[in-house]
Nucleic acid binder design. Structure first.
Lengths: 199, 199
DNA sequence: AAGTAGAATGAACACTGTTCATTAACAGGG
DNA sequence: CCCTGTTAATGAACAGTGTTCATTCTACTT
């Protein structure tokens, strides 16, 4: 890329994200480096810093995109199922499926951590909230639309689903393979929600 | 340390682990480096490689120690409670407390991943199994001592507890602070186990 | 045509884990 | 007591990492 050449800033932005996303899809986040992106694009490392403040910003942007896709997929997965419990089980299975089908991107999503002291940018937190609200809204009918109860249940379910996928993926659940994760997820969602309704 | 000087191999081993553990406790795993350990001990970097094969081996050794402590603490926490449900709730709270009180060490435990293709050493997998068996044994009385049911429930609970702590710690549960994690954990354990016993 | 603003550049810096030829200290034999 | 292995501590060197910034070149304005 010639010096001083004015290129479409927005275009470069998306190119960087596309290239970075592809590397992560193929090789995982540990194999992503600034120089690798620059080499694949055909520009200098410094150029990337004119578009993103740090490699962390690139990670965060990718995560926002991943969460947007996840949200859409979960919505589609559960929509049309009138029974709230059945819908929530579908959502659980959908989450497991997403984490399996997007292993490296999902790993980035859950493994990436802010450096100590820094908080999540609001657009990232917003996406988290969106996902949380999706779950909360689905749980509400099961707890007499008690907002507080629904929020707590949603937090428990969301975090638990995350835990099941997380341990299943990293092989830390002993003999549990990725295929079995959806069985665990269904057991989790069904029994937790049943338990909530006991008396 | 003078060249060629024969020092107690075992002593150096534990010294390295102690120093590394202290750094992680104070600053987190991202701040641990081979050179930092060497500097604090007062030896060369190469010396560390005579004792450990890689920095990953150091991480794994620390994780084994952490899991041993966690196992002991959970055992103490729940022992003496005759009611299985109440005992399991105690275990859940104990787990949350441990992750709160040992933030950096616990983070290392859950964040550390084998590089692709490599599997966990058997002593590490053994410690995971120990913890899992602890939970499985406690759940058994609640599912008519059905081994298979108990194993599945233990997997669900263990993974879910992990998820609750994980998201609570990283601030990804929105307004949920670390103090509230034990409330979520209790909700999780109680209602899941109640649900399991419905009908 | 000259001047200016802006961005692409890549060398440089301070780090990382890991390797390995060098070298110093010890142990045993003559 | 010296000499000779053997052993292990050493730290420079290597190939990486993210990040910075003075330089340089282009495109646009006056």
């Amino acid at each position: 890329m010639a010096r001083g050449q004015k290129i479409d800033h927005q275009e470069l932005h998306t190119t960087i994200l596309n290239v970075a996303t592809q590397i992560i899809k193929d090789e995982g986040m540990k194999c992503l480096s600034i120089r690798k992106i620059a080499k694949k694009i055909g520009c200098a490392v410094g150029t990337l810093y004119n578009v993103f403040n740090s490699i962390d910003d690139i990670f965060l942007s990718i995560n926002v995109a991943t969460m947007t896709r996840l949200h859409k997929q979960l919505q589609q997965e559960a929509q049309g199922e009138p029974d709230p419990l059945a819908a929530m089980i579908l959502l659980g299975r959908g989450y497991v499926a997403f984490s399996r089908d997007n292993y490296h991107l999902w790993s980035l999503l859950v493994d990436h951590k802010m450096q100590l002291g820094r908080t999540l940018p609001e657009n990232v937190q917003g996406k988290i909230d969106d996902l949380f609200l999706l779950v909360s809204g689905m749980v509400a009918p099961l707890v007499s639309n008690d907002r507080e109860k629904a929020d707590q249940a949603a937090k428990v379910l969301w975090a638990s689903l995350h835990g099941v996928c997380s341990l299943a993926m990293s092989g830390k659940l002993d003999t549990v393979k990725a295929e079995a994760a959806d069985v665990l997820a269904e057991s989790l969602v069904r029994n937790y929600l049943l338990g909530l309704q006991v008396k």
